[in-house]
Simulated scan of single mutants.
Amino acid sequence: MSPEQTTLETATGADTPEIGVTLETQTHRAHVRYAASETPGVIWYDPRDGRERYVCDRTVTMADFESMDDRVLTSVVVRPHRPGEAVDGRYCVVRNRNGLETFTRSIDGERVPGLVGIGSYRTADVFDSLEAAQEYCREHVAGYADAPRKDAVAARGER
């Protein structure tokens, strides 16, 4: 492992990884998603395009909601604004939240309205740079600023 990789893996959320690192083997873009799902509380990043994922270190239950309007942040994704297209330098921050919703379900062939369950919601904003997107996350996402950073591609390649 090179000194740069060691530095990036032990860096905190205030540090920025080197973007555009060339890899010797081809891997797919889901490494960040897989690693974050398996290890919450860590910022997993992809050095090829700057994509990041941070899963909050908690499980959401019905007790987390006092009203139908409450939303609980579950994860944050930082990704290129238009992945797969010409790089415009902009990055998108996608916030995944859970909240209560009312729905109708069929139980024993009968439609039962007004049931309450936990639903998923997404909101997103576009920033002019990766640094601006990361700064937003440090300021608005609890735990992000102090979370350790890990290279998901390197970690998944070791398995």
Score class of each variant (00 low, 15 high):
1 M>R: 04
1 M>P: 05
2 S>W: 01
4 E>R: 14
5 Q>S: 12
6 T>S: 10
6 T>C: 02
10 T>K: 13
11 A>S: 15
11 A>Q: 12
11 A>W: 00
11 A>T: 03
12 T>H: 07
16 T>W: 02
18 E>Y: 03
19 I>F: 09
21 V>G: 03
21 V>A: 12
22 T>F: 07
23 L>G: 06
24 E>R: 14
25 T>A: 09
25 T>G: 01
26 Q>T: 11
26 Q>E: 11
27 T>G: 10
28 H>S: 13
29 R>K: 11
29 R>H: 12
30 A>N: 13
30 A>K: 13
31 H>C: 13
32 V>N: 10
32 V>F: 08
33 R>Q: 10
34 Y>F: 04
35 A>H: 04
38 E>V: 02
39 T>D: 05
40 P>C: 06
41 G>R: 02
41 G>W: 09
42 V>K: 08
44 W>K: 02
44 W>P: 03
45 Y>N: 05
46 D>E: 11
46 D>T: 09
47 P>M: 04
48 R>W: 04
51 R>S: 15
51 R>T: 15
52 E>T: 10
53 R>I: 01
54 Y>G: 04
54 Y>Q: 08
55 V>C: 11
56 C>W: 00
56 C>P: 01
57 D>H: 07
57 D>A: 10
58 R>I: 03
59 T>H: 05
62 M>H: 02
63 A>R: 01
63 A>L: 05
64 D>V: 06
67 S>Y: 11
67 S>E: 14
67 S>D: 14
69 D>R: 13
69 D>S: 14
70 D>M: 05
70 D>R: 06
70 D>S: 13
72 V>C: 06
76 V>S: 05
76 V>D: 02
77 V>Y: 00
78 V>Q: 07
78 V>L: 15
80 P>S: 06
81 H>G: 06
82 R>A: 13
82 R>F: 03
84 G>T: 13
84 G>S: 10
85 E>V: 04
88 D>C: 14
89 G>M: 11
91 Y>A: 08
91 Y>F: 15
92 C>I: 00
94 V>K: 09
95 R>H: 11
95 R>G: 03
95 R>M: 13
95 R>L: 15
95 R>N: 13
97 R>K: 11
99 G>W: 02
100 L>H: 14
101 E>Y: 05
106 S>A: 07
106 S>D: 10
107 I>F: 09
107 I>Q: 09
108 D>S: 06
109 G>C: 01
110 E>W: 00
112 V>R: 13
112 V>I: 06
112 V>N: 02
113 P>E: 15
114 G>V: 03
114 G>Y: 01
115 L>M: 14
119 G>N: 01
119 G>M: 01
119 G>S: 02
120 S>D: 14
121 Y>Q: 13
123 T>H: 03
124 A>N: 07
124 A>L: 01
128 D>P: 06
129 S>I: 05
129 S>T: 11
129 S>E: 06
132 A>S: 12
133 A>G: 05
135 E>K: 11
136 Y>R: 03
139 E>W: 01
139 E>S: 12
139 E>F: 00
139 E>T: 12
140 H>W: 06
140 H>I: 03
141 V>G: 08
142 A>D: 15
143 G>V: 08
143 G>P: 11
144 Y>P: 06
145 A>D: 14
146 D>P: 02
146 D>L: 07
147 A>W: 10
148 P>K: 09
149 R>L: 15
149 R>G: 01
151 D>I: 12
152 A>V: 10
153 V>S: 09
153 V>T: 15
154 A>C: 00
155 A>I: 02
155 A>H: 07
157 G>K: 10
